[in-house]
Simulated scan of single mutants.
Amino acid sequence: MPGTQLFATLGTAFESPTTTELVNRPDGRGGFNPELEPQYLYGIELGGRRRGSMVQADLTLFYQWVRGRIIPFQLEGDGRTFYRNAGRTRQYGIELWLQARLTPTLHIRLAYTGARYRFEETELRDKRLPGLPEQHLALTLQYRRGPLWLETTGTAVGPCYADDANTVRVDGYVTLDVTLGLARSLLPGFDLQPFVSVQNVLDQRYVGSVVVNAGGGRYFEPAAGRSVRFGLNLSTP
Rank of each mutant, 00 (worst) to 15 (best):
L150M: 07
L150C: 03
L150Q: 04
L150K: 01
L150E: 01
L150H: 04
L150T: 05
E151S: 15
E151K: 10
E151W: 01
E151I: 01
T152C: 11
T152W: 11
T152M: 14
T153H: 02
T153W: 00
T153Y: 01
T153C: 02
T153A: 01
G154A: 11
G154P: 08
T155I: 15
T155V: 15
T155H: 10
T155P: 09
A156W: 15
A156L: 15
V157Q: 10
V157M: 11
V157D: 08
V157T: 15
G158R: 08
P159K: 02
P159T: 04
P159E: 03
P159D: 01
P159S: 11
C160Q: 14
C160S: 15
Y161Q: 06
Y161W: 15
Y161G: 06
Y161M: 05
Y161N: 09
A162T: 02
A162F: 06
A162W: 04
A162E: 05
A162I: 04
D163I: 04
D163T: 06
D164I: 09
D164K: 14
A165Q: 13
A165S: 13
A165C: 09
A165M: 11
A165I: 08
N166P: 01
N166Y: 00
N166M: 01
N166C: 02
N166I: 01
T167A: 10
T167W: 04
T167E: 13
T167V: 06
T167I: 05
R169C: 09
R169H: 14
V170S: 11
V170G: 06
V170A: 11
V170M: 09
V170P: 08
D171M: 10
D171V: 06
G172R: 05
G172Q: 07
G172K: 03
G172A: 06
G172D: 05
G172P: 07
Y173D: 10
V174K: 12
V174P: 04
V174A: 14
T175P: 08
T175A: 09
T175C: 10
T175N: 10
T175H: 06
L176H: 10
L176G: 06
L176I: 08
L176Y: 07
D177G: 05
V178Y: 04
V178Q: 08
V178D: 03
T179W: 03
L180V: 13
L180P: 02
L180A: 13
G181V: 00
L182C: 05
L182T: 01
A183K: 05
A183G: 09
A183T: 02
R184Y: 04
S185V: 00
L186T: 00
L186A: 00
L186S: 00
L186G: 00
L186H: 00
L186M: 01
